[in-house]
Amino acid sequence: MSRLTFVDVCSGAGGLALGLEQAGFEPRLLLDEDADSCRTLRANRPQWNVLRTDLLDFDPSEYPESYDVDLLSAGLPRVKSSATVRRADSHVEERLLKAAIYLIHAIRPRAVLIENVPGLAHSDNYQPFRDFARAELAHLGYEFSWFIVNAVDFGVPQNRKQGVLVAVERQRAKEFRPPAPTVEQPTTVGETLLPSMASRGWRDAARWAAQANRPAPTLVGGSKNRGGADLGPRGAKKAWATMGVNGHTVGDEIPGVDFVWDPELGRDNMVKITSEQAALLQDFPESWKISGLKTARYRQVGHATPPAVGEALGRAVAEALGWDPADPVAG
């Protein structure tokens, strides 16, 4: 059976690419500038064609496999909030967004998928970029949609909203519909992590899971320029504390038999989420191994698109392109 093809830029730990694979797409080329991320991709999918390079330096003319593809996908670094807009490096993310749009000129995919912060879809702060994208894509013959998805609506145990741009060639554009939720009830942190928390014999694993009876707040990977890993800003840390989790750090290992869980005694008696458990909260399969030291592993996980979201978006794009996975001559 023929599969749809895609090029994925700023691939990170591979969450978006894995979801697209599950939706019936086959990658021609994946690129990322981070060495650990490239090692992660190669370790889990040795057959994938992974290139370590910065998107700003990428020249598709040197890689003919990047042409004649069905989809260009990009899980780009998050654009800065208004609170950080004056930082010296605050324009790097915006440059990457524009670089992804310019790449469309070169490789001319049948569809485009870009995900980023929710505000990119509707906030006045990002209107200049939306105007830029609209002008460029209309000139190239694409029509597009901006919309927001929340990972919790697709079975991911995390409230994680993402702003999404999907552009489709004009002749097929009216066929595109944003993906509908796939679950009615949210998946919780407790039910997702209970097997892992109990795996070393911790006696309070079930009692903790009963308290962690809601989805996680958004995991945040953070910048390479800041310190060690934690579970997000102040509000997220408070939310984690209500589940008996110390959100000020990332754990080295899951609790053992003798761990005393008593949040009233303070952070030292709260559970610490490991990088591997964070990956489960991002919907990565347990078999997906993240390369690098602890902080680097957590950063890759925190920046990823949950595969379930990538799959839902990929299926919606595939349907717009007229691809039926049950058709042996599809593609």
Rank of each mutant, 00 (worst) to 15 (best):
F144D: 00
L120K: 09
N125Y: 13
A111F: 06
K174V: 03
V189F: 11
R110M: 00
I114H: 02
V189P: 07
H122P: 15
Q162A: 14
F154K: 11
I101F: 02
A151G: 13
E136D: 12
Q162D: 14
A138H: 05
A111N: 06
R95H: 15
L165Q: 01
T188R: 14
F129I: 06
R177Q: 10
Y102T: 01
A133M: 04
Q127W: 07
P186I: 10
V156R: 07
R134Q: 12
F147C: 01
Q185T: 14
P118G: 07
A111L: 03
R130K: 09
V117C: 08
P186V: 09
E169G: 01
R172Y: 03
G163D: 04
D153P: 11
R170G: 01
A135C: 04
G119Y: 12
W146Y: 13
T188W: 11
R160V: 12
V152I: 15
G141H: 03
L120Y: 07
N116P: 12
G155D: 14
P186M: 10
T188K: 12
I148F: 12
H105Q: 14
Y126G: 05
A100C: 07
I104Q: 02
P186E: 11
S123T: 07
A180T: 15
V183M: 07
L165C: 06
R130H: 08
G163P: 13
D131N: 05
N150M: 09
V166P: 02
T187K: 15
Q185A: 15
P186S: 10
K161E: 15
A99G: 10
R160Y: 13
K161R: 14
S123V: 05
V189G: 06
L120M: 15
N125Q: 13
E184G: 14
E169V: 00
R110E: 00
Y102R: 02
I101V: 13
Q127V: 04
G119P: 14
A100P: 05
V149R: 09
V166M: 01
A138D: 06
A111I: 06
Q158A: 15
R172A: 02
Y102H: 05
D131P: 04
Q162M: 12
F129R: 05
